[in-house]
């Protein structure tokens, strides 16, 4: 008999569940082992302690109360069932409505009719002719001349155009460039000014003075510079 089996026998003895032919054997083991005796005493005290648990106090368990409870439960059930049915009906209706809406938009008068046999050509003459697409004509506000790209710079640089009083001529290269007064050009939005950083677009096609203001390479702070470029002569000043 190993220790686990012995423990089970001791517990059974303490709770009075041991077979009569095993009682003497376990009792002799307990008498010869202090550990076994302590284990037996602990489980016996637990068994005795269970009898200390208080008896249940008298309760008011009238039959009328039970009847009321059963009645309230049975009366509530049909309402609950109808509630579920209503919810399910609402869900089904919403799914149907969504499906119908999607189906309707897919079979619009402009959509081609599905033809199962490729040899049969669908007669769409009864359908309304599709509205011709409106061509968008965008008139440029000013002639745009693509400036000579002197250096490829980062795309993060902003394209700005100065007002007419801020135009810097090639001759006045020492004049300070007021970068804060530059405004973005309306007509230059679609132009490929990927190299230019800041520029004042000429007011007239003959005015070839362009100012490029670079804020430096991406990620490098404090390296702003001004570049003046004469597109006709290919002159670049500054940098």
């Amino acid at each position: 008999m190993n220790s686990k089996q012995l423990e089970e026998k001791i517990i059974a003895l303490a709770y009075g569940e041991l077979d009569s032919n095993e009682i003497e054997q376990v009792r002799s083991t307990i008498a010869n082992s202090a550990d076994a005796a302590q284990l037996f005493e602990e489980f016996k005290s637990c068994r005795d302690a269970m009898s200390l648990l208080p008896a249940a106090p008298s309760a008011s368990l009238g039959t009328e109360r039970l009847r009321q409870r059963i009645l309230s439960r049975t009366l509530r059930r049909p309402a609950l069932r109808w509630g579920w049915a209503g919810g399910a009906a609402a869900l089904a209706a919403s799914v149907f409505a969504a499906f119908y809406f999607v189906n309707r938009t897919q079979t619009s008068p402009y959509a081609p009719m599905p033809v199962s046999n490729p040899g049969i050509v669908a007669d769409n003459s009864h359908r309304a002719a599709p509205t011709p697409a409106i061509e968008k004509t965008v008139e440029p506000t000013a002639p745009i001349e693509k400036p000579t790209v002197t250096k490829r710079v980062n795309r993060s640089h902003r394209v700005l155009r100065s007002r007419s009083e801020d135009v810097i001529t090639a001759a006045s290269d020492s004049a300070a460039v007021n970068a804060s007064s530059l405004v973005p050009p309306a007509a230059d939005k679609g132009a490929s000014f990927d190299a230019a950083v800041a520029t004042n677009v000429p007011n007239s096609p003959n005015d070839s003075t362009i100012v490029l203001i670079s804020s430096g390479e991406r990620g490098v702070a404090g390296t702003s510079r001004a570049v003046e470029t004469d597109s006709d002569n290919g002159i670049t000043i500054g940098g």
Binding site: A56, R65, R69
Partner: peptide, 24 residues
């Protein structure tokens, strides 16, 4: 049922409630 429920919960009110609910 009530005796068992009381020993499980140690609360008279709760044991009564459990007893009623059990029979329902």
């Amino acid at each position: 049922v009530y005796r068992f429920a009381y020993q499980m919960t140690h609360s008279r009110d709760e044991a009564e409630d459990i007893t009623q609910e059990t029979f329902v």
